[in-house]
Design a protein around this nucleic acid. Structure first.
Lengths: 222, 222
DNA sequence: TGTACATCAGTGAACGCGCGTTCACTGATGTAC
DNA sequence: TGTACATCAGTGAACGCGCGTTCACTGATGTAC
């Protein structure tokens, strides 16, 4: 009776996903979707726990059954983001095919593409301020994504004669920093984005080619 | 009488700067200091207008005499930050002395030093989400700071024979992105900072040298 | 197959809190004469 | 130099709001027998 007005879904035009009655059935996943949607809309700072509950069409106390607090939910979003990021980068690298420099360029493009098409994940991963020390799984997920860059750097480094090989770790950090810098400054959808006389992808590709040239890695080696 | 308990300073152990009576005398500047202090302490998201008033030892309505709202204050902090940034970078570049590559390295070090020693300014400038479109002065201040990088890039580019000169704009954007990426990922004081097997400065310097090498700009040319 | 019961995943009402903002006001300061 | 007055830069009380969080509760689900 008292609860019937919240039943059946859509009474406030707010709740998303299937409601099968008193029990939601899949609230945890729905809250993560809510977070992504709301972060995308209002930014990482404007997102609140209460908002997520509203979005899911559920009482404000319900999320506490699944997450300790807002930060725990945010950390889970970030973790999931890193997992998708890793998969996305792995596909782009494609084990160095068709050739290493092309694959390396694809990796860079994929980095920017992810930042652009998944700004909510990207924000949760890099701008939400969730502590890596308090979330070991999150750190591990981030490390696994970084490992793809490292693997690619290793393959490129190995094309040089022994003795002239730059440390793969350093290369990977350079490329990560560069891609992250470009994504932060130019490839995000927010109002602080700077204007650019070229696409972010072109900017990154040019920088990467110059960088590899500087290392003595010139295009289209096997 | 009623107001006397707020007079004379320090009644709550919160207000800073000189209070000379009913009129503050320099509230505008004090609010900016408050913002810097509070952003440094709680981050850009945790900073509120009411907090700034409290910090200044003033009623919550007082700031409205000087700033339209929290974002206007934030924009002013960011603008001031870009002005200091510009001055700092100018000093570091030192008109290309003692030689161009050394001066360029100094510029990079200065970039990271600013991000580290002035994290509150840096956050307001790059992470506060203030709109550049709504704040033309802010955009201009940012452009002026960027112009230092561009000037340095021009000087380096000009050491190459005509025809082989890379566009200075592109070089400047590359260096900016790289430095910003490193600063964001590794040189900030927050909990999301990644661990690094070297200092951010070393990482940036190595990248810069490789990059210049790739352009054919080798060290210590006049 | 049915029934009793434990457990799970929600409800909804309530609370304290701090923020943003407004309002009529008032003390301090500057200026015209 | 003194005085009247306009303006400026504050006060402090009040308001509505949304958030985070707790609490006793209850409907739904699963399981032992």
């Amino acid at each position: 009776m008292a609860w019937s007005k919240h039943r059946g879904g859509g009474s406030k035009g707010e709740d998303h996903g299937p409601r099968r009655g008193y029990h939601h059935g899949n609230l945890r996943e729905t809250l993560i979707k809510a977070a992504l949607d709301l972060i995308g809309e209002k930014g990482v700072a404007g997102f609140t726990f209460a908002d997520a509950a509203r979005w899911a069409g559920v009482s404000p106390a319900a999320p506490y059954r699944h997450f300790r607090d807002r930060d725990a939910l945010m950390a889970d979003v970030a973790r999931q983001g890193f997992e998708r990021f890793e998969a996305f980068l792995t596909t782009a690298w494609n084990d160095g095919r068709p050739d290493l420099t092309t694959a390396f360029g694809n990796l860079g493009k994929a980095y920017l593409a992810f930042a652009r098409t998944e700004p909510a994940y990207y924000s949760a991963m890099f701008e939400s301020g969730v502590s890596l020390d308090d979330n070991p799984d999150l750190r591990q997920a981030g490390d696994r994504a970084f490992a793809i860059l490292r693997k690619a750097a290793e393959a490129l480094s190995a094309t040089l004669p022994q003795g002239a090989r730059p440390p793969a770790m350093m290369m990977a950090l350079h490329i990560w920093s560069l891609a992250h810098g470009i994504a932060s400054l130019f490839a995000r959808g927010d109002a602080a984005r700077r204007k650019l006389p070229m696409t972010p992808e072109e900017l990154l590709e040019a920088a990467t080619l110059i960088y590899l040239e500087g290392l003595g890695i010139t295009g289209h080696r096997k």
